[in-house]
Design a binder for these strands. Structure first.
Lengths: 209, 209
DNA sequence: CTGCCTGCCGACCGTTCGGTAGACTACTCT
DNA sequence: AGAGTAGTCTACCGAACGGTCGGCAGGCAG
């Protein structure tokens, strides 16, 4: 029983992180014990502590890798030189698809991050606020340009991101929807909900890409 | 120190339930201990067990009182003899306002109910499905009548209720929005998002009531 | 006055929690 | 061959968990 017996593509530390994200999503941070995690990974509880110093550190790591992966993708979309409605459409679709595909990690990011210790929490709040500000800016751009009807942008971002987060909890693979199915439906609904009058134009723009 | 000293309007059992709902929302079911609850109520942990047989029973009771209070209100709206879009608008506004006003209870209903023991869970799933079916039926009605664009009703209900649930987690009283502000904004956004073409007519209908 | 019932309490139970200590094994590098 | 190291193990720790027990104070009915 050594550390090189069976590396099926993933290092132990990475497997631990994966299983931890999965457990934190399904049983919540407080509901998942280190023993549960050890069992899922197939090692003993003590061995976990060789790779990560604490349960908190596991959560912090999960949140951080997610934070450094997804926001840049959205930021890239936000910087495109296309109408705000099109940018927001793509941003929502990406955020939603990512939320479903990597729901273990995104659930930790959006739901379990509140269990971060105060030290990590402060850091995380700031990053999360910056991430959500990307969406709010897109909405404000769209209102300014007349693509969306005048409305409170912070309520709009609350509605949109709340909807996306909901997908994580409500998604069930056995229902037969692909992440992209849901992502597209949500993005369409959101753009329409913001009061855009020519959704067809956005669809056409997407199809051309 | 007797049981009749200071009933400030609420019986002990009811105060326990209130504080439990608040704690379960803020710290989650697994994160809130019976000692936390006892401290919040101002009695000892042992005394809790005089009123409720277990922590599980507390959660079950919270979920059940919510379940027997809110769905009838929505069912009443769903049965009104007005266009589907108007009924759905009012149903969403009510659900959202209620989610925010009674967010301790509604959070337990929508988020913590997954910690119910299997026995209670089965019962709860059925009721929750029936509740959500109310919304889905309204959406299907609106599609059939041409008020909403053709779309997958179950994805639509996923988006709408996900958005509403999000309000519970994202709402912060200090931001200055009233529950009704958010409820109206969400209902408008949702109806628009479903593809209704004459939102003004719905607003006019609401104003007349 | 007596006896019961309600609400509460301090003390305690067994279990599980996150985390630690130290030894063992097998691999790598010199 | 020998030293070092990475990864795992068994065994254990103190604390906190949900829950139980027996008893005590006081209101109330007989």
């Amino acid at each position: 029983m050594t550390h090189l017996d069976a590396p099926p593509g993933l290092e132990t530390a990475e497997r631990i992180l994966h299983e931890a994200a999965a457990l934190f999503r399904t049983k919540s941070f407080n509901g998942a014990s280190m023993q549960d995690l050890a069992t899922a990974v197939g090692i003993t509880k003590s061995s976990l502590y060789h790779h990560y110093p604490s349960k908190q550190a596991l959560l912090a790591e999960i949140v951080e890798v997610t934070m450094s992966r997804v926001p840049p993708l959205v930021a890239e979309i936000a910087a495109l030189d296309i109408p705000a409605a099109s940018r927001l459409h793509r941003a929502i679709a990406l955020h939603t698809a990512e939320s479903i595909r990597e729901r273990d990690y995104l659930a930790c990011f959006s739901e379990e991050s509140r269990y971060l210790s105060p030290a990590f929490m402060a850091l995380h709040r700031e990053k999360k606020d910056r991430y959500e500000a990307l969406f709010q800016q897109l909405i404000e751009d769209g209102i300014d340009s007349g693509e969306f009807v005048a409305q409170d942008p912070s309520l709009a971002v609350m509605a949109v991101l709340g909807m996306c987060d909901g997908a994580i909890r409500r998604y069930r693979p056995e229902d037969g929807y692909s992440p992209d199915d849901i992502a597209t439906a949500f993005a369409n609904a959101a753009i329409r909900g913001l009061g855009v009058h020519d959704l067809e134009q956005i669809d056409a723009g997407e199809a051309a890409l």
